[in-house]
């Protein structure tokens, strides 16, 4: 269909017909991703706002709520997620330097770290379920006072929504790995790698605030 560009020798195959140049396409892709991230931030901000509201209303509940959470596990997960962000950045660098090995290895490491995050989270959740700490209405833990159900409602919503983003991220990362295996992203068209990277860093970014707010502050 790219009838207008068919005979331009300097134009890579992968530039869509409606873009003037590959620079236009790449900058549009990245700008679009940043707008998507803006949307994600506002999506999460609703829950953070609820956190601020209820923390202000019930300060003591919030303090004792943080006691119920295991800050060492949370800290471990923070380190894991930061490491995954690091390997993701290196993966993008691998695509920039056109090194398939660096891209593949770093994508794989990122997926492994993401998996590790999920495993730690699984132990945290299952421990709470075991104690009977369920979201709000189903809350059945006897050993705490205050408005714990509402604290845990916020906890489960925030970490759960974050978890869903991690799982979606693992999906995207695996897709990237699969495509890299097939030899893609080595021709300068690595906008997908960059954009998944941006998404993954945002997931990290949200956790960076989530962790101290839920686990540490008391």
């Amino acid at each position: 269909m790219a009838h207008a560009h068919a005979d331009d020798p300097n134009r890579p195959e992968w530039v869509a017909h409606f873009f003037h140049s590959k620079e236009q396409q790449l900058s549009a892709a990245k700008f679009g991703m940043w707008l998507f991230l803006a949307q994600e931030v506002l999506f999460f901000s609703g829950l953070f706002c609820a956190y601020v509201a209820f923390r202000w209303m019930y300060p003591e509940t919030w303090l004792s709520g943080a006691d119920q959470l295991n800050k060492w596990m949370g800290g471990l997960n923070t380190l894991i997620l930061i490491a995954s962000s690091f390997t993701m950045a290196l993966a993008v660098r691998g695509a920039q330097t056109k090194s398939p090995t660096a891209l593949k290895v770093n994508l794989l490491l990122t997926i492994l770290f993401a998996g590790g995050f999920c495993v730690v989270k699984y132990f945290e959740y299952s421990h709470k379920f075991h104690l009977g700490i369920f979201p709000a209405d189903h809350y059945a833990y006897e050993g705490s006072t205050g408005l714990m159900p509402i604290f845990f409602a916020i906890y489960y919503c925030l970490t759960g929504l974050h978890m869903i983003h991690v799982v979606i991220g693992i999906g995207f990362l695996s897709w990237l790995l699969f495509k890299t295996q097939k030899g893609r992203f080595m021709d300068g068209n690595y906008a997908y790698v960059e954009n998944v990277g941006l998404y993954w860093h945002l997931v990290d970014l949200i956790w960076i605030f989530l962790f101290p707010l839920l686990y540490l502050v008391k």
Binding site: M88, L198, H201, L205, P212, L216, V217
Partner: peptide, 17 residues
């Protein structure tokens, strides 16, 4: 805690992103 978190976030945004 929020100052530290903001510092970390700034590092991620400026360099990793």
């Amino acid at each position: 805690a929020m100052i530290v978190a903001t510092m970390k976030a700034s590092l991620v945004v400026t360099f990793f992103m």
